[in-house]
Each structure stands twice: as structure tokens, then as C-alpha cells.
Amino acid sequence: MKVGTFDTRSGAIARALATPKGVIAGGWLFLVVFVAIFAPYLTPYDYDIQNLPNAFAPPSAAHWLGTDEFGRDLLTRIMYGARTSLSVSSVAIGISVFCGMCLGAAAGFFGGWFDRAVTVAVDLTWSFPEILVALILVAIMGPGVTGTMIAIGVAYLAQFTRLTRAQIMAIKSETFVEASRSLGAGHGYILFRHLLPNALTPVIVAAMLATGDAIILEATLGFFGLGAQPPTPSWGALMSSGTAQLFKAPWIIILPGVAVAVTVFAINLFGDALVRALDVRAGLREA
């Protein structure tokens, strides 16, 4: 509960990396992020250059992962897809964390009718599957990258509001906060110097795990043609276009899915290692 300072947090990352699971998971995540950022410099081909005679080429020396129905290099498209998928899910979770922390902190700190209203709204969305919430929002905003980001962001809002509120409520009554208050500290000082820094650790861990779920959600929306629109490659969109070719060229759909599964698996492994290193309550994941 009292993992407060950034020292202990970076120490926890080091401790998480010291476990074998942590190294493997962390290594893969580093690789994926690196590829996503530097995709234009790393990819052997352009992601949207078509080469129809060479469509459905199976994996070969020239095209390590084969080509898609337009003869585009699949490895290139998966690397660019990492860009879209990672940025969409991390921006979405960023939105969620920021708005959720504001709402949750305000609700937990000030209490009263605002707290009750937030709690009711959060409980309402809590039991609904994220995919449904996201589908409603995509229905409203229309398909596309922006719509997907906001939809995923709102879908996970309840989780972070709930978590922040619970943390603030727990820390609010602790002795050191009371002491600070009795020394004349104002609302703002207490909120930003005491409560939020202490609430941050569990939120960071939860955000990390939620990013994994968000990648799956992004892929799902993309798969239904509601996410990034062609020719922009995202992991979901790649699999969507691969469905029609399932029997003819299964690698088009299998490989982006492997990228999703391995990345999400790595995020979960690293998250677990982090939870252990931070000693945040193990029940966090089930909450």
C-alpha cells in the first residue's frame, strides 16, 4: 500500500527484470516497442506497395512471412501494424487512466453527491463487457482510429475510476495524511503530494495489464472492420483481410494473431513479475 516514491518503483522494475520470466517478457516488449517506433527504418518493403503477381506467396527468403492478397510483404505490414495497435491501445489506456484518475480522485477525495454519482455510473458500466461498451461507442462515432481510441478509452474508464477511488479512500484516513492536514496543508497539497503519488503504483500495474486487454480489443474491433481503415495496417485489420484467405493462405491470419497473443502474454507475464516485485495485492488482477 505504501509504495510511494519513484525510487521504489524503478527498483521494482529492476527486480521484475531480474526474474527469468521478467527478462523474456521485458525483452519481447522492448523489441515490439522498438519495431513500432522505428518501423519505417527497419522494414524491408513499403507497407502499401502492391505486387499482384506475387500475391499469396508463402514464407520465403525474400518475404520471410509471405505476402498477402495484394502481394504486400506480411512482415512489413505486421511491423507497421505494431505501430497502429500499440499506439491505439496505449493512447486509449492513457485516456482511461487520466480521466479515471481525475474522476476517482475527485470522488474519493471530496465524497458527497459527486462520489455517489460517480460510484453509480461506474458500477453501471462495470458489469458490462468492454467489447459491448466499445461497440456502442463505435456505433456512435463511426469506425476509424480516433473512434477506436475513444471507445477503448471509455470501455476501461470504470476500472481506473474504481481503482483510484478505492486507493484514495484507503490512504485518505492514514496517519501521515492527518498529520499533514493538521500542519495546515491544503486540499491541493494533500491530493497531489500525498494521495495521488500513493495511489499511482496500483494504477500503473493495472494500466499495464489493461493495455494487454486493449490490444485484444483493438484487434477485435479491427477484425470487424470497425478499427483502422485500409490501407493502414493494424493487427486486427490484417487478420480481418486474412479471413477470406483462411484456407488459401492461412499465414496471413495466423501470424498477426501470434503477434497479438505473444505480446499480450508478455505484458501479462511482465505485469505479474511487477506485481510480485511491488508486492501490490495479488488480488488486483481478479478485482
Partner: peptide, 12 residues
């Protein structure tokens, strides 16, 4: 960690 639709396609 596998997207449901993808797992479904693999099983098919």
C-alpha cells in the same frame, strides 16, 4: 491472451 475470433479461426 489470444483474441477470441483468432482462436476460433485457428480451431476451424
Amino acid at each position: 491472451t489470444m483474441p477470441g475470433f483468432w482462436l476460433g479461426l485457428l480451431l476451424i
